[in-house]
Simulated assay, not measured.
Amino acid sequence: MFPVDPWVLLAFIPAGLALNLTPGADMMFTLAQGLKGGPRAGMAANAGIAVGGMVHTVIAGLGLGALVAAHPVAFDVIRWGGVAYLLWLAVQSLRAGPMAARGDVAARSLGRVFVDGLMVNLLNPKVILFILAFLPQFVDPSRAVLPQFLVLGLVFSLGGFVVNGVVAVFAGGAGQRLAGSAVFARWLGRVGAVIFAGLAVRLALMSKG
């Protein structure tokens, strides 16, 4: 038997898609990487974020997410780790400049961008709390909970991957077209740094509630 009732899934898809379309940290991170490194870099970041969302889903489904929600110290440790990581990315963006200026992104760089997207998502404790608040509304307690979490989380992550993928492609195309200018190339690096720093501040100011 399919873990999730088909009618519940039909209700979940538009609700999840509406949330995917709401601009947030994941979309802004994908936008920054697309501008900085081109469409492939944006999609690499997007893929890392999607995988991170599934990891959060598994954690929540196993009940570990509830522990993070219940213990402020664990929440703060993860949150400040995320702040530090985003600030490090901002510094790297200023020092390295936009990769799109080179016309392409090396395979190693794409792997690095994927890991960055994964880490930014995993180090955002708000994602765990969101999953704990949103997914259970569509979970039938009379059925096995973890399979339902996995199916719903996969659908939600795929929706986010598609939406953020569009952002990555358009931002990456714009970044590559404009990066031919050395002056604009420097500004792309600065824009990326501002976005990363802004996300760090946003995460730092977040409260658990």
Rank of each mutant, 00 (worst) to 15 (best):
V145M: 09
A11P: 00
G61E: 00
A69H: 03
R95Q: 14
R40G: 03
I128H: 02
A197W: 03
N121L: 07
L86V: 10
A41R: 11
M43N: 14
A47L: 15
N164T: 08
V68S: 06
T22K: 08
W88G: 08
L87C: 12
R143E: 02
L118N: 02
L122H: 14
P72I: 04
F130A: 15
A41Y: 14
L129N: 15
G34I: 06
L89M: 11
I78C: 12
A185S: 08
F138N: 00
R108Y: 01
S181R: 08
V68L: 13
A168Q: 07
S181T: 07
A200E: 07
A107H: 12
A179T: 12
L87K: 13
V139Y: 00
F161S: 15
F12W: 02
M206S: 15
A66D: 05
V183F: 11
Q148W: 06
Q176G: 12
V51E: 05
P23T: 03
L146N: 05
I128D: 06
Y85G: 13
Q33E: 11
A179E: 05
I49V: 12
V91F: 06
G37M: 15
A84L: 10
L64Q: 06
P39N: 07
L31H: 00
G82V: 14
P14D: 08
F114V: 01
G172S: 05
S157V: 08
G117R: 15
D104S: 14
W7N: 13
V83N: 08
A70V: 06
M43S: 11
A74Y: 08
A133N: 00
A144V: 03
I13L: 15
D5P: 07
G81L: 01
P125W: 01
F156H: 13
H71K: 06
S142I: 00
R177V: 10
A74T: 12
L17M: 09
D116Y: 03
P98D: 09
G172V: 11
V77H: 02
A133C: 00
F75E: 02
V77P: 07
Q33A: 11
P125A: 05
P72R: 09
L89G: 09
F196R: 02
L132V: 03
P136M: 00
A106V: 04
S93E: 09
G48Q: 14
W187V: 11
F184Y: 10
H56L: 04
G53P: 06
G82Q: 13
A174C: 03
L17S: 09
G16F: 00
G53M: 05
G198H: 05
N121Y: 01
L17T: 04
M206C: 05
K208T: 03
F149D: 00
G153S: 10
R40W: 12
P14E: 04
K208A: 11
R108K: 06
H56R: 01
P23A: 15
A204E: 09
G175S: 01
R186H: 13
L64F: 10
G165P: 09
G165M: 12
L152R: 15
G61N: 03
G65Q: 14
A69F: 01
L31P: 04
L123H: 12
N20P: 10
R102F: 01
A25E: 10
V201T: 07
I49S: 13
W187E: 08
V58K: 07
L94I: 13
D140L: 02
M99G: 06
A200M: 06
